[in-house]
Amino acid sequence: QTIHNGDQTYHYDNPEEAIKVAQKLAKIYNLTVTVKGNTVQVH
């Protein structure tokens, strides 16, 4: 599972963990989380 947060990319073995982290980032920075296959984008 990969999270793209602007210019930063994070890799997680656990998809659920990746989505949790993405949602935390989204709340902190007031962003949107988009899940596309194995990629979670925060923008």
Rank of each mutant, 00 (worst) to 15 (best):
A22D: 00
E16N: 06
T34S: 08
G6S: 10
K27A: 15
H4E: 10
V33D: 00
V42N: 00
P15Q: 08
I28R: 08
L25N: 01
L25Q: 01
T9V: 14
E16K: 07
T9E: 09
V33G: 00
D7C: 15
I19E: 10
L31D: 02
K27N: 14
N14Y: 04
T32W: 07
A22N: 00
I19Q: 13
Q8S: 09
T9A: 05
T39G: 02
Y12L: 07
H43N: 04
Q23W: 07
T34K: 04
I19P: 00
H11R: 08
Q23I: 13
N38A: 06
G37D: 06
I3Q: 11
T2K: 07
E17A: 08
A18K: 00
V21H: 09
A22E: 01
K27I: 13
K20F: 09
L31R: 01
T34R: 02
A26M: 14
Q1V: 13
G6P: 09
K27P: 05
I28M: 08
N14G: 04
Y29G: 06
I3R: 05
G6Q: 10
T34N: 03
L25R: 00
L25F: 04
P15K: 06
A22P: 00
Y12K: 00
K24R: 13
E17C: 12
D13F: 05
K24D: 13
K36M: 12
V42P: 01
Q8V: 15
H11P: 02
T9F: 15
P15G: 04
K20A: 12
A18G: 01
T34Q: 04
T32N: 09
A26Y: 06
V35I: 06
K24N: 10
A22F: 04
G6N: 09
I28A: 05
P15Y: 09
V33N: 00
N5Y: 13
I3V: 12
H11K: 07
I3W: 13
Y10V: 03
Y29C: 14
N5L: 12
L25H: 01
P15R: 07
Q23L: 13
T2R: 03
D7K: 12
K24Q: 14
N38G: 05
V33Q: 00
V42R: 00
T2N: 11
H11T: 14
N14Q: 04
H43F: 08
D13K: 13
A26L: 08
N5D: 09
V35W: 02
T39L: 06
I28V: 09
Q1P: 12
T9P: 03
A18P: 01
N5I: 13
T39C: 14
Y12Q: 01
G37N: 05
H4T: 09
K24T: 13
Q23S: 06
N38W: 02
T9D: 04
E16D: 08
D13M: 08
G37Y: 04
V21G: 08
E16M: 07
K24E: 14
H11L: 07
T9H: 08
Q1L: 11
K27Y: 14
N5V: 12
E17I: 14
I3D: 11
A22K: 01
